[in-house]
Design a protein around this nucleic acid. Sequence first.
DNA 1: TTGAAAGCGCTAACAT
DNA 2: ATGTTAGCGCTTTCAA
Lengths: 362, 362
Amino acid sequence: MVKATIDNVAALAGVSIKTVSRVVNKEPNVRQGTRDKVLKAIAELDYRPNLSARSLAGNRSFVIGLLYDNPSANYVIDVQDGVLSICRAQGYDVLIHPCNHQDPEIGREVSDLIRQTRIDGVILTPPLSDVEPILSVLEQRQLPFVRIAPTFDKAMCPFVETNDAEAAYDMTCELIALGHQRIGFIAGHPDHKAVAHRFEGYRAALVENHLKVDKQLVVQGYNSFESGEEAARKLLALNPAPTAIFAANDDMAAGAMMVAHQSGLRIPEDLSVAGFDDTPVAHQIWPSLTTVRQPIQAMAQKATDLLLKQLKGKDVQLPASMLSSSMIRRDSTGPAGTGPAGRSGPVAGKPSVPRKSSSGGR
Amino acid sequence: MVKATIDNVAALAGVSIKTVSRVVNKEPNVRQGTRDKVLKAIAELDYRPNLSARSLAGNRSFVIGLLYDNPSANYVIDVQDGVLSICRAQGYDVLIHPCNHQDPEIGREVSDLIRQTRIDGVILTPPLSDVEPILSVLEQRQLPFVRIAPTFDKAMCPFVETNDAEAAYDMTCELIALGHQRIGFIAGHPDHKAVAHRFEGYRAALVENHLKVDKQLVVQGYNSFESGEEAARKLLALNPAPTAIFAANDDMAAGAMMVAHQSGLRIPEDLSVAGFDDTPVAHQIWPSLTTVRQPIQAMAQKATDLLLKQLKGKDVQLPASMLSSSMIRRDSTGPAGTGPAGRSGPVAGKPSVPRKSSSGGR
DNA sequence: TTGAAAGCGCTAACAT
DNA sequence: ATGTTAGCGCTTTCAA
């Protein structure tokens, strides 16, 4: 009971080990009766194939590598969970490999990883989906891989993406519809092309609505909370200042809100703020943040699915897969122009409630 | 160049494969000259040992399992990073295994994981460090493991912990020193013993300072933002209401702050709020949250270190390792009693600044 | 449809 | 200090 091998199973079932192997690997050409005998023996001995032996003999590891370099814990965890859910169902394991996309040795690092672990395939997440040295190592070694949200050379391998630019467009249109004419934009990290792309949606919406794209209103951010704060300070120092700020991700939007609070601006009365990603912080800050939700787990699942299909030799007919983001309207956005009117008084519309009567208990 | 085996290296170096093996595994009893020859051959062929073969022959996998069931992405990522940093340096890989601590089949699941993957050891993170079925499977299979922040049977295996209760005690004392007499406490998830333990620190501080421990002021939470909101509503409905709320983690503290904001309470003038963990949200919300920072990565590193030492047969003399948390004082806490005075007017002390002059630009 | 035999690349005894 | 010889548990030809 401690450890059953394929030999034990074969002996108990009265067949050869090759037959057991066939059953375990769901290969055809096994009579139903034989298969049943084998399955019974497997169950009886509680047999589990040894992955190392399998991998050594079969020259594949049943392990895939998940590469990432993303400061957002939530993003990474969502991706991991999506990948794992598919892998578990199909008997694969996942090796996580955080790395630094700016490391000049990154190609070497990936190369070593592949050769050491004998991983069968790789999933690349942004911004690694766009890192040349990694891509060329993968192609050179002919290792199957998929990319999540790549921005160029999309024919290289199967990939999944979302309609980021479109969602950014919708968000901007919504702000315009609320009466905002001067909408500041905090752009994403330039290395993070997929995030940077969101700017296109913003721009398109302005053009579409005959608003001029004012360079002063577009500030470079770097995806971090702090970069959002800094960008917001620049934007709010403009004269006239924007009445709305749209940040390319939630962390930067949160930074903008912090600056607004510290400046005594009310949100959304004096300033509307919108983000992108719907990270947990979006609904934990006050006021809750209007943002765009991306189907991160679903993307990861789809990507994994595409990779495993490749590994099983199935031709992946549709190399691309597009998933849709959705707008989440919360409390940080509102009509433009309500600000100045209430500027002099206490918080308008949100009267200071005597604490005892606060929302009436549980 | 595509794939070099130990035989190729041996041939090129003019030695036997066993000698190569010795060099690769840093075993003693190899003359320096021989070692150099082998290393040269390895470099020349760019040889990388095949892990599967190694694992099959050596009956160990050079892979450890990291088990967790924690809703906090930040916590999980920190642990992963800590574990990976040590493992990489020592040539180990990590298999991550999120799971559900309430699953009745959890023991079976872990058992299968071990037998399939042949992992060499396991790291248990809270709340899994306290899950009986997992512990018994591990002991039964005699698989080396370490626990992070276990709360019972600590002699079972090496472990690391922090002085949670002490930190909670310090935080509570600080609130008392600020003049708070009625301090609400939002307790952690009961299954999450380590978090639940923080209550002890709160209680001890009250007793120490001759304040009575009012049952009404202690509300059960479940570690989530939403449970924090609900608990805060109960606390703020009390008469008299607490002047400070100490939540057993940051997410719940953020929930409490949200409720306070919605009730028109000013933080910290009307209500001080403190959390625990120093998650990113703590400095991203407004006002920034006073909290306790735990050395999560360091704990994970220490735990991994202890595990790998075990795997290498070294006796781990010190089964326990205690790391210290530190208080992070931010803007969500302040002196008691400043609230009522300003209650009737607009936001006191934080005048509504005309936006143009907001903090003077960049 | 099933089986026999030959490795996969390495480590572990046991020589020498 | 170094080499020889068996396997580890499986998959893969190739036969039957």
